Amino acid sequence: MKAMSFDETGGPEVLHLVDVPQPHAGPGQIRIAVRAAGVNPVDWKIRNGSTLRTLPVPLPHIPGMEAAGVVDEVGADVEGVAVGDEVFGAAQNASAEYAVLDEWAPKPPELTWAQAGGLAMVVETAARGLDLLGLSAGQTLLVNGAAGGVGLAAVQLAQARGARVIGTASRDNQEYLRSLGAAATDYGPGLVERVGPLAPDGVDAALAVSGEGAIPDLIALTGSPDRVVSIGDVTAANHGVTFTTGAEGRAFYSLREAAKLAAAGRLTMPVARALPLAELGEAHRISEAGHVRGKLVVVLD
């Protein structure tokens, strides 16, 4: 099968198209003919070697942790899914013509292949953050960095759970957040003063999706480090804030929650760019540059 791979760590140029044997579904797994695979920041962090200590991978390596496609092989002890079903989920080595899924949900027809291909990891990450915060109906959540994939998933999942959401984003993305029903404001210095008028009853919880710098303001707004969870700011622990990596447990139950919400028109995921598999390196470049609304994906015929 065709796949994108790298033999050494480095820039996007180390990615190249290769022919490799097809993987097969083991017990509890399914295999799909990939129609779209998502690109996440962790993919290029693995590729450039910055995660070698925390997330080592053997080389050569096929990147990609999420995909959508058509089931063509079902492993032992798997029930409720059959060859020919359309699914999305958490994958192994997803930037390829075939990929093995460990966790999955039915793909709603309301989502395109590109949208579904970039959904699994952002939904799981967002749901894990909300769970760690103990978010409940009637509370106000601040999402710092709300226009990327994880941020948009958090906004929509939180609203579906009955929370009121305020999201920070660049000016270009704020109107989109408002179209989803969230309040929106700028990120960066002065956050406490800007959020105050948007949350007259206070902020109950905050999810730090974007990079470093906002944690002190999020603590000030919520009143306690215990009310803040970080996904993107690795300095969180310095402030007594939980930094979640998934090592404490995953929230893959949320894939089916997201599928149901998408089918009901209550969750979507914009696709910033959909590129051919062979242009995965370009997708990595765009992701590294940041400020992507929604998801980047590679698509296969």
Rank of each mutant, 00 (worst) to 15 (best):
Ala68Ile: 00
Arg164Thr: 11
Val74His: 10
Asp233Gln: 05
Thr51Glu: 15
Gly196Leu: 13
Ala126Tyr: 01
Ala126His: 01
Pro63Phe: 00
Arg194Leu: 09
His61Met: 02
Ala236Asn: 07
Ser210Glu: 15
Arg171Ile: 14
Leu111Gly: 07
Val150Glu: 03
Gly181Cys: 09
Ala169Ile: 14
Val229Asp: 05
Leu180Ser: 11
Gly84Phe: 04
Leu17Tyr: 12
Pro216Ile: 14
Gly148Pro: 07
Thr185Ser: 12
Pro276Gln: 08
Ala220Gly: 12
Tyr176Ala: 15
Ala154Glu: 05
Gly117His: 06
Asn48Gly: 10
Glu110Met: 10
Arg178His: 11
Ala114Thr: 03
Val195Gly: 02
Val165Ala: 05
Glu13Lys: 01
Ser5Ala: 15
Leu142Thr: 00
Asp72Cys: 10
Ala82Lys: 13
Gly294Cys: 01
Val123His: 06
Leu142Asp: 00
Ala105Lys: 08
Gln29Ile: 07
Ala264Gly: 11
Val241Gln: 06
Arg293Asp: 05
Gln22Phe: 03
Gly167His: 10
Asp19Cys: 06
Pro225Asn: 07
Val155Met: 08
Leu221Ala: 06
Ala33Val: 14
Asp186Tyr: 14
Ala25Asn: 08
Val299Phe: 02
Glu110Ala: 15
Val74Tyr: 09
Pro200Ser: 11
Tyr253Asn: 13
Asp43His: 11
Glu212Gly: 13
Glu73Phe: 07
Arg194Lys: 11
Tyr187Trp: 11
Gly232Asp: 06
Arg178Ile: 09
Gly145Gln: 03
Ala96Val: 11
Val229Arg: 01
Leu198Glu: 05
Thr222Arg: 02
Ala105Ser: 14
Ile30Pro: 07
Arg171Gln: 13
Val234Trp: 11
Val297Lys: 00
Ala184Arg: 01
Val228Leu: 05
Ala251Thr: 09
Gly10Cys: 10
Gly134Asn: 02
Leu255Cys: 15
Tyr176Phe: 15
Ser254Gln: 05
Glu288Thr: 05
Ala259Lys: 12
Ala96Leu: 07
His284Ile: 02
Ala208Trp: 00
Ile219His: 03
Thr244Lys: 12
Val20Phe: 06
Arg250Ile: 12
Pro216Gln: 06
Ala251Ile: 06
Gly117Lys: 03
Val234Glu: 15
Val292Arg: 01
Val195Cys: 03
Arg194Trp: 10
Leu218Met: 11
Ser287Asp: 03
Val14Gly: 01
Leu296Gln: 00
Glu73Thr: 13
Pro12Arg: 05
Leu267Ser: 01
Gly26Val: 11
Val297Glu: 02
Ser224Val: 10
Gly281Asp: 08
Gly294Pro: 01
Ala160His: 11
Tyr253Lys: 08
Val298Ser: 00
Ala208Val: 13
Asn48Asp: 15
Gly196Cys: 10
Ala68Ser: 13
Pro197Thr: 08
Ala259Asp: 02
Ser210Tyr: 09
Ser5His: 13
Val70Ala: 04
Gly246Phe: 12
Val195Thr: 04
Gly232Thr: 04
Asp102Cys: 12
Thr112Ser: 15
Pro189Glu: 10
Val292Ser: 03
Arg256Met: 14
Val122Tyr: 02
Thr140Asn: 04
Leu152Pro: 08
Gln22Val: 13
